[in-house]
Each structure stands twice: as structure tokens, then as C-alpha cells.
Amino acid sequence: MIERTPVLNLVTHAVLFIGLAIAFVPMWLVFVAATLSLQEINTPPISLLPGSHLWENLAEAWTRADLGVKLTNSLIMSVAVAAGKIALASITAFALVFFRFPGRMTAFWLIFITLMLPLEVRIVPTYAVAANVFSPYQTILDVTGLSWLWQQLTGAELALEWNLLNSYTGLVLPLVATATGTFLYRQFFLTVPEELMEAAKMDGAGPMRFFREILMPLSITNMAALFTIMFIYAWNQYLWPLLITTDRTHRGTAVMALRQLIPMSGDSTGGGVPDWNVAMAGCLIVVAPALLVVALMQRFFVRGLIASDK
């Protein structure tokens, strides 16, 4: 469109530049802080240009918070959550969209209601389940009297137990058990032309073959989008890993490790002023993988966020 609005264009650029500054300046200052010595950083005013201590700060943060182990844990958790979501979401959505059988709508609502309540608001009882995944089933068996029956028949007490504390499974499963990706996949499957399935039927392919050879290859972009947002979602988890991992040295995640760089009131470090340069260096390391994934997969990230409507 041909439009001569020099003043407004100037304002537009100014506003967008402010936006850019809001997004970028905090990251820049964190980076600068990570390059200063402890003395430099505690001398106001805040420095705007980087110093020369970046590598030693990074190294210090790395050892102090044992980031090698933590980053590995985070990576394992995030990849597992993302992959698990894709597997679970695609087969569930496949059943919901391409099959008709009694009980399907009930299942649909049972699954989609879970979108209403995020993990955080039911965190305490979820933790209790993670302590023994079989506790729901044990309770059901106890209440219905089936375990009593079992004891009478076999003489052995029926005690199901599967503790997920401090395990990767425990980190991953509750994060996978929601409907976010299912919703995204369902939306995608609904856009697949019906004729494609009919053509597959005419070609003699059954449901699983159609799923594997037609739907899965078609949903590659969808998969990438879901993978990206779920990876970021899992990487940035804080509350759940904090609860499920009591063995913080071996099972802690990178984001949790920030705690070790920041004195917490009530912790053994006892509050007080942190070593900001090391803390910011740690912050950089923890955030870098997520930023990298988003930078590389930006298109998919945006697409995934919007399509899943959270």
C-alpha cells in the first residue's frame, strides 16, 4: 500500500525499538553481569559493557551448581516429555478423530477436561500419587474387597507399590499426562481431507497402516511444533522437579540448580547477597538450550503455541 505517514512511521519505529529494548536489554545486562568480577558488579552504577571474566564465571557456576549433571537431567526429561507427548497425543487423537465407537465421546470429555486444571493447582495430591503410582489401584482393590479376596486365595498380602520419587519416570509421566498435545493433534487430524482416508481404504490399507504410512509422515510439521513447545515446557518446569527429586545432587534439573547459585532465605546459605556475576553466568547456561531451540525452531514454536491454544 502506498502511504505517506512519515511521523507515524517514526513513532512506529520508536515504539518497536522500545519493545526491542524491553525484550533485549535485560538479557544483555545479564550477559554483561556474567562477564564482571565480583568487585566490579557490586560497584554501582550498573555496567553496560562486558568485562573480561566470562569464562571463569561460567566455570565457577558450572562447578558450584554441578551443571553438567543437571543439564543432562534436564535434557533427558525434556526429550522424554516431548517424545512421550507426541506418541501419546498422536495415537489418542487418531482414535478420537478417525474411529467411531460407543464411549468415544465420554473418553473425549474425560481427556479434555484435564486441560482445565494445570498441574500446579493439584500439586500436593499428585505428589502423593507419584510416591506410589499404584496407590489409586491399591485403594480401589482395598475398597472393593478384591485384595481381601486375593489374600484369602493366595495367602499373600496384596501390596502394589511403584515409587517414582527421584526417578526420570516420575519427572516425566505427570507432565505427559495432560491433553495439550492431544488437542493439537486432533486439530490437525480434523484438517486431513476425508478422501485421503477413503483413498487409503480403496488402496486396501487398514487403520494402523493408514496411521503409520499416511498420517504420521503428513504430520511432521505438527510433530516439530509439538516437540518444540513441549521441550520448552518441560525444560522450564520448576515446581514439579523440586518436589519429585529429593536427591538433588543426582536427579536435580538445570532450572532447579539456580537455587544453588542464589541464597534463599530459609536455606542453609541463609540469605544475604549472592555472587551476582556467578549467578548470572549460571542463568545464561540454564537458559541457553531453551533459547537455542526456540531460535532454531521459531516457526514451529510459534505455530505450536498458537495451534495448541495451551
Partner: peptide, 28 residues
């Protein structure tokens, strides 16, 4: 459908978008 010995040409062709022409033709 596959047991009836019919083949069908669809209105929007329903070609599998991720397969080549050869794979599309040969899929059956």
C-alpha cells in the same frame, strides 16, 4: 472396499501429499 475390486478417482484427487507420483500410483 479393497475386497470389491473397485478403484476410485476422487473429486480432489486425494493424492498422498508426502509421496512421490510413483509411490502414489504404486501404493495399492
Amino acid at each position: 472396499p479393497r475386497e470389491r475390486g473397485c478403484a476410485m478417482v476422487f473429486q480432489n484427487y486425494a493424492l498422498y501429499p508426502h509421496m512421490t507420483v510413483a509411490e502414489n500410483i504404486g501404493y495399492g
